[in-house]
Each structure stands twice: as C-alpha cells, then as structure tokens.
Computed example of a mutant assay.
Amino acid sequence: MSVSSRSRPLVVLTTGEPAGIGPELALMLAASGEALPATLVAVGDPAMLAERALALGLAVELDVIAPEDEIPAPRPGVLPVWPVPLRVPARAGVLEPANGEYVLETLDVAIAACRDGRAGAMVTAPLHKGAIIDGGRPGFTGHTEYLRDACGVEEVVMMLATDAALHGIAAGGPRCPLRVALATTHLPLREVADAITAERLERVLRILDGDLRRHFGIAAPRIVVCGLNPHAGEDGHLGREELDVIAPTLVRLRRQGLDLAGPLPADTLFTPRHLEGADAVLAMYHDQGLPVLKYAGFGRGANITLGLPIVRTSVDHGTALDLAGQGIADPGSLQIAVTLAAEMASRKG
C-alpha cells in the first residue's frame, strides 16, 4: 500500500544496537499506549525484542510481518515488526561486534522502504559506531554519512532541535533558538579546519535554508553562523578561516538572498541577544554546538538529517550501554523523533 493512501504516514523504526537501549525504547513506546500521529513498524530481531520485553516486564505483543505485507492499524500495546535476524545472541549492555552487520541490515530495510514509497519516514534508535567498525566496517562514521551514501547524495546536514523548537513550529508558535546544524559531523578535531571550505559551507547553508523552508514551513529562515576559532579568529590573530573562508561565503550567499548572521564567536553566540529571531544556528563542528543544545534539552529533542530524498529523524542520545536492560531508559526523545518524522512525512506528502 502506498503512503499516500494511509490516514497517517508509515514510520519505520530501526531498533539500533541490540546491546543498547534502542530495543527497549521501542518496546516502551509500544507499551505506553501513547497515541502517535503515525503507523509505526519496528525493524529488528523479534526473538531479541520478545526476550527484552519479558525481562523488563513490558506487556507488548509483537506482530511479526513481512515488509511487503499490509501494516495493520495501530493498536495500544502492539508493535509490528519487520524481522531481521541477529548474527549472534545479544545481551543488554554487552557489545558483540558480530552484530554490526545486523544493525546495518535494519537500516538498509528502512531506507529501501522509504525510497520505494512504502514508508513515509524512518526513525533510528542509536547504534554503536565502535561495534560496527570492529565488526568489519572500518570506514563507518555514523548514521548520517551512511544515509548520505545509501541515498547517493553529495552532502547532508545533521541538525538537532529541542522539543520546544519542534513544537513551536508545529503549533505555528514563535521562533525558537535551539535548532543547531553542523557544517562537519563525525571528524577528528584535527581534520575539521581543512574540511571547512567555501564549497562545503555553501552546500550546507543551502541545504539548511532549503529544508527549514520545506520541512518546517519557515518562509525566510534566519541562520546564525559560528566562527571556527576562539573569538571567531580575533581578526586573524587566532586563525584565518573566518577571514579567508567563512565570512566571504556568507557575504556571497547574502547577496543571493539568504538571511545569514556571523561568523560570531561560539562562546557568545548562544546567548539571547544573538539568538533572538534566529531559526537555526550553524556550528562548524560536532562539539561546538551540540553540547549547548543537549544541556538545554537532553532527552527532549530529536536529530534530523537534512538534504536527503527521504525523511529521517533520530533520538538525541546514544546507546547508553550502562542503562540497557534495567528498564530505566527514557523513551521521550524517541517519541519526539517519531512525532516529528510523521509531521515531516505528512508535509512532504
């Protein structure tokens, strides 16, 4: 059945690293009976999910169905599952690199469903990069880059947002400052400066501007851009990337109609004066912008991959191996990610 023929979009949820909290978050969401604006189907090993539900005392019925079959209407306490078998048995909190390929297969199933129109969006529970690398994929750097390559696009943009930002847009409310995108994603810090090129910045800013319009309904996005160096380079005394690359790129794009502020020092950018009226912040690297956002709303936000031909959201946290199997993980971020994916899919459709 096509997505357009459904009363609500089909959202495919990959259950992530089987030793982490991803499987139990999916089960918790189903057990809660919380009404979602989507028809949800999980991708994972049904036996592992059943074992985890039993261990945690979660009353969840697993409805195992083939990807080509009809998804039944949502029912409280029922989780439809597209089955993918584990490579080796999984234990909560104990990584098994042999299951790295299992995690990637769940992603491939979800990507295929979105690309061929069977699903309107995909949501990913956290994976463990180290386990996938140790399992035989030495070049693996994360969900974002894997999705980029699988969809055959040149550039994607990672953006995280707090629930206040997401709900503000959904309700037509005021602009919210804590929507943070990244110019580079999973790179060692020593490689970041070389990766900040005029070409990359232009691609990232055009994707960010375009998808804020397309997915979030913002008619004229205002984007505030961080500098790379302390004090945004201090007029070249602390680095020249701002003078040679970032500022000239912003000037050129402003002339073409993009509303861009900066480059501004990251240590003062995240203050009310600079964030007033901003729709998003573009940080130059992962740990420049995300710690601020996660401090403000950890567990209450979502990760969105911009620039893809499909809709993908994710939780704002990792595998939390130390919490896995204890029943104390919080499914709040997953619920936000599913709701956002459904909203984006409906807007896209």
Rank of each mutant, 00 (worst) to 15 (best):
V123D: 06
P9D: 03
L29M: 15
T197C: 02
L321W: 12
R255D: 14
L54Q: 15
E101P: 04
R200V: 06
P83R: 11
G227S: 09
A66N: 13
G100S: 10
P76K: 10
P309M: 04
A324D: 09
A171N: 14
D163L: 01
T271R: 14
P230K: 08
L238T: 07
E199K: 12
H274T: 03
V251N: 05
D163K: 13
C151V: 08
T339S: 14
G22T: 09
A337E: 08
A171L: 14
P85H: 12
V81K: 12
V84F: 08
K348N: 08
L127N: 06
P85V: 02
L290G: 04
V338P: 07
F140V: 08
A283S: 15
E199R: 14
P67R: 14
D149A: 15
A19C: 11
G257S: 06
G227W: 07
A90T: 11
T249G: 01
L62S: 07
L10S: 03
T14M: 09
V123A: 04
E242N: 03
P97N: 11
E101A: 15
V123P: 08
W82H: 15
C114G: 05
R240I: 01
A171P: 00
S32C: 07
A198M: 01
D244E: 15
R203N: 11
A31L: 12
R118K: 10
Q335E: 13
L201Y: 04
D149M: 12
E70Y: 02
K129H: 07
L250K: 05
P85D: 15
S333Q: 04
E199S: 14
I111A: 13
A92L: 09
A220E: 15
P83S: 11
T144Y: 05
V60C: 12
G172Y: 08
D330I: 12
V204D: 05
R190T: 08
L264Y: 09
E241Y: 00
S314F: 06
T184H: 05
H286P: 02
E202N: 01
L178C: 00
H317R: 09
E234R: 05
A119R: 04
G44N: 11
G135Y: 07
E276C: 10
L238D: 06
G257M: 09
E202W: 00
P72T: 04
V292G: 00
M344K: 00
M28W: 01
G117W: 05
I304R: 01
G217L: 05
R87P: 00
R273Q: 14
R300C: 03
R87L: 10
P272T: 08
L166M: 13
V153I: 13
M158T: 10
I223F: 02
R115P: 00
R118L: 09
A198H: 02
D330C: 07
E202D: 13
S346H: 11
Q256M: 05
G262N: 04
G349Q: 14
K348V: 04
E24Q: 13
G22K: 10
